[in-house]
Write a protein that binds this DNA or RNA. Structure first.
Length: 595
RNA sequence: GGUUCCGUAGCUCAGUUGGAUAGAGCAACAGCCUUCUAAGCUGUGGGUCGUGAGUUCGAGUCUCACCGGAAUCACCA
C-alpha cells in the first residue's frame, strides 16, 4: 500500500506542479493513533514544488488522490501532514488475502539464504549456569529460530570451556576434600556439585594465602607459593601431558557437569547441533599460530612468546602463545573459528557473547583477517548487555549470583501459586497442571529477558518477583488462551469459521486497528532478523495482545447475530492467535491452550 | 588515562531511515464480572528525554562539548 501511495503522490505532484520528485522526498508513514486516517504523507519536503503553504499543498494533493484513487476514502490536513483514510473495504480485502497465505512469514523470506552458525551459551565447566547465561541462551536460541524462519540455514553451536587452570582447581579440591562424593551419593546436580568444590578451593586457597602473609610473605609471593596453587599447576601440567589419572578424573567430573547442564538446557528449552570443546580447539589454534609465524604475520619475542602486532588496525599487541608454549583464550578462539569454517563454510558466524568481550572479538577478527582468512568478515559479535542487580553486578564472592536452576524453579512455583489462586484449572490432572505452570513460569522469565533490547544492560531485581500482569509473557499467553477458549465454545455450539469469504463483513475501528497490526508481523520478524533483536518480536506480541484484548472487550464474537460479521471476528481471532503463537515460538516461549 | 557502550515518569522498559501533543507496564488512586477466561478492560495523577550548544521547516533520534554510569585495555577465560 505504501508503495502504491508513493506512486500516486509522485503522479499527483507531476500533474499538479509539473515536477519530478525524488523517491526519498515522498515520506509515507502510518498515521499516529490520535489522528484520523491510516497513512500520512509528510508534505514539508514537497513545498519546494508546490511553492505554497503546507496546508494548501496538503489539501491540493489530498483532493487529487481522493478523486483518482477509489481506495482512499477521505483525507484531512493538520499542519504539514496529510492524513489519508483508506476504505474499510480495502483493509478487509487485504486481510482476506492474509488468511489464505500459506504462512504469515511469506514476505519475510530472504532472497539469498545464508549458512549461519550461531554460537551461544559458552559455559565454563566449574560453575553452574546463572542468570547471565539465561539471557545468553535465550537470545541465542531465539536468534536461531528467527533467522531460520526467514529462510537461512542456521546451525546452533556451543563452545565449552573445559580446559585451563581454573578447571584443575575444582578437580584438586574434590580430590583432597571430596571423600568420593558424587552427584548420586549427594543428590546434588552435577554442575552444582563441581561448583561447590570450586568455591571450596577458593576458600581454602585464600586461607593459605592469609597464613603465609601473616608469616611475613608478601602478597604476590604468597599467591604463587601457596601449596594448593602449586598442586594445581602440577595438575595442569599432568593434564597437558595426558596423565591417565588426571584425565580420568577430568572426564569423570566433566560428565557430571554435562549431565547437569543438559538438565538446565532442557528445562530452558534450548539445544545445540554441534558442540565444540576448547580442549580440542586449542590445538588447532596453536597450529595456526605457528604457521602464521612462519609466514612472518606474527612475531616471536625474546622470551619466545608469540605475538600479533595490530597497531596498524588501531589495536594493540596481542599475545597468542605463552613463553612456555601454552595456549591462551585467543589461541583457542582462533582455532575454533578455523575449525568451524572448515566444517561448515559459513557465510556468517554469530557469537552470542557479552559486551565485556567487545575488544576480544575486534582482535579476533583483525588477526584472522591478517592471516588471510577472507571469511573473517562474516564473524559477527552479537554483543549483548549484562544482567545487573539493583546494587550492580552479580558477584560470587558476595553470594549474589542468581542461579539458573533456582530461578526457573521459583518462576514455576510462582506460576503455580497465581494459577491455583485463580482456580481455573480445577478439572485438569496434576500432570496437565504441571505442564501449564511450567509454560507460564518459563514464559514469564523468557519474556522478561527477551523484551529488553539485547544490546542494553538490564536490571533484574531478585527481591521483586517477575510480574504476571501487564507487559509480560503470561499476559500474551492469556490472550492466546482466551482466543482458544472462544474457539472451543464455537465448536461446542457448532459455529464454523470460514476464512475465504469476508466480503459481506463490516468492520469497526478496533477491527481495522487489529488488521493493521497483524499486517506488521512479517515486517517485524524481518527487522528482528536483520537487527538481531528478538525484543522487537516480543514487543510486537505485546502490542498485538493489547489491541486484541481491547477488541475482545468491546465486541462480542459468538454473540454477534450477523453471521458475516461474526465470521469476520472469528477469522480475525484465529489469525491473531496464529501470529501470537508463532511470534512467541520465535522467542522460544510455549503457549498454553488454557490457563 | 585510551577505546567502546549507556543516560527517557518513583521503578522496569518501548520509541522504525530525524516528523505531529514523547508511550507502555509496575507501583498509587477510581471504576467495570447475569454476556466469548477480570492473568483482562477503562480512567486519574506522574517528564527540563543527563546538561549546554549546533545542524534544520522540524531533534528523544544527527554533530560537538561537558556531567554521570558501565565494560574493556592480562603470559585469566
Amino acid at each position: 500500500m505504501e508503495i502504491v501511495l508513493k506512486e500516486k503522490v509522485k503522479e499527483a505532484v507531476k500533474i499538479l506542479y509539473n515536477s519530478e520528485v525524488a523517491d526519498d522526498l515522498i515520506q509515507i508513514q502510518e498515521t499516529r493513533k490520535d489522528f484520523k486516517g491510516d497513512f500520512t504523507l509528510v508534505v514539508f519536503p514537497l513545498l519546494r514544488y508546490s511553492k505554497n503553504t503546507p496546508e494548501k499543498t496538503g489539501e491540493t494533493i489530498g483532493s487529487y488522490l481522493v478523486e483518482k484513487f477509489p481506495d482512499i476514502a477521505g483525507f484531512n490536513v493538520i499542519k504539514g501532514f496529510l492524513n489519508l483514510e483508506i476504505s474499510d473495504v480495502w483493509w478487509i480485502e487485504y486481510f482476506r488475502r492474509m488468511t489464505i497465505e500459506k504462512s504469515h512469514l511469506e514476505n519475510s523470506q530472504v532472497s539469498d539464504p545464508e549458512t549461519i552458525l550461531v554460537e551461544y551459551s559458552s559455559p565454563n565447566t566449574n560453575k553452574p549456569l546463572h542468570l547471565g547465561h539465561i539471557r545468553n541462551n535465550l537470545l541465542g536460541y531465539s536468534l536461531f529460530r528467527i533467522l531460520s524462519a526467514c529462510g537461512h540455514r542456521v546451525i546452533k553451536t556451543n563452545i565449552v570451556n573445559d580446559r585451563g587452570i581454573h578447571i584443575c582447581k575444582s578437580m584438586l579440591a574434590w580430590q583432597k576434600f571430596g571423600n568420593g562424593e558424587t552427584p548420586a551419593s549427594s543428590g546434588m546436580k552435577g554442575d552444582h556439585l563441581v561448583g561447590k568444590y570450586y568455591v571450596l578451593f577458593e576458600k581454602e586457597y585464600k586461607a593459605q594465602i592469609e597464613k603465609l602473609i601473616q608469616a611475613g610473605t608478601d602478597e604476590n609471593e604468597a599467591k604463587n607459593s601457596a601449596p594448593l596453587m602449586k598442586e594445581t599447576r602440577e595438575m595442569l601440567l599432568k593434564w597437558e601431558a595426558g596423565d591417565k589419572e588426571v584425565i580420568d578424573l577430568w572426564k569423570k567430573m566433566n560428565s557430571w557437569v554435562y549431565a547437569g547442564f543438559d538438565e538446565t538446557y532442557k528445562k530452558l528449552g534450548v539445544d545445540f547441533d554441534k558442540i565444540y570443546y576448547e580442549s580440542d580447539t586449542y590445538k588447532t589454534g596453536k597450529e595456526i599460530v605457528l604457521s602464521a609465524l612462519k609466514k612472518d604475520i606474527l612475531y616471536r619475542n625474546e622470551d619466545s612468546s608469540i605475538w600479533a602486532d595490530l597497531t596498524y588496525d588501531g589495536l594493540d599487541q596481542k599475545l597468542l602463545l605463552r613463553s612456555d608454549g601454552t595456549a591462551v583464550y585467543m589461541t583457542q578462539d582462533l582455532g575454533t573459528a578455523v575449525a568451524r569454517y572448515n566444517e561448515y563454510k559459513f557465510d556468517k558466524n554469530i557469537y552470542v557473547v557479552g559486551n565485556e568481550q567487545n575488544y576480544h572479538f575486534q582482535v579476533l577478527r583483525a588477526i584472522l583477517n591478517r592471516m588471510g582468512y577472507t571469511w573473517s568478515d562474516g564473524l559477527i559479535h552479537f554483543s549483548y548487555g549484562m544482567v545487573e542487580l539493583p546494587e550492580g553486578r552479580m558477584k560470587s564472592r558476595e553470594g549474589t549470583i542468581v542461579d539458573a536452576d533456582d530461578l526457573i524453579k521459583e518462576m514455576q512455583e510462582t506460576a503455580m501459586e497465581v494459577s491455583l489462586e485463580l482456580g481455573k484449572l480445577s478439572d485438569f490432572s496434576e500432570e496437565e497442571k504441571e505442564d501449564v505452570f511450567r509454560k507460564i513460569g518459563l514464559g514469564a522469565l523468557k519474556y522478561y529477558i527477551l523484551k529488553v533490547d539485547p544490546r542494553k544492560n538490564m536490571t533484574f531485581n531478585p527481591a521483586e518477583s517477575i510480574d504476571f500482569n501487564g507487559n509480560t509473557g503470561p499476559f500474551i499467553q492469556y490472550t492466546y488462551a482466551r482466543i482458544k477458549s472462544v474457539f472451543r465454545k464455537a465448536e461446542q455450539t457448532g459455529i464454523l469459521t470460514e476464512t475465504g469469504s469476508l466480503n459481506e463483513a463490516k468492520a469497526g475501528i478496533k477491527e481495522i486497528e487489529l488488521i493493521k497490526l497483524l499486517r506488521k508481523y512479517s515486517e517485524t520478524v524481518s527487522q528482528a532478523a536483520t537487527d538481531y533483536s528478538p525484543a522487537l518480536i516480543a514487543n510486537y506480541c505485546y502490542d498485538l495482545s493489547r489491541e486484541y484484548n481491547q477488541f475482545y472487550h468491546d465486541y462480542s464474537i459468538l454473540g454477534e447475530d450477523d453471521t458475516a460479521v461474526r465470521n469476520f471476528r472469528l477469522v480475525l481471532s484465529k489469525v491473531t492467535s496464529e501470529i501470537l503463537y508463532e511470534g512467541m515460538w520465535l522467542l522460544g516461549i510455549e503457549m498454553p491452550e488454557r490457563m
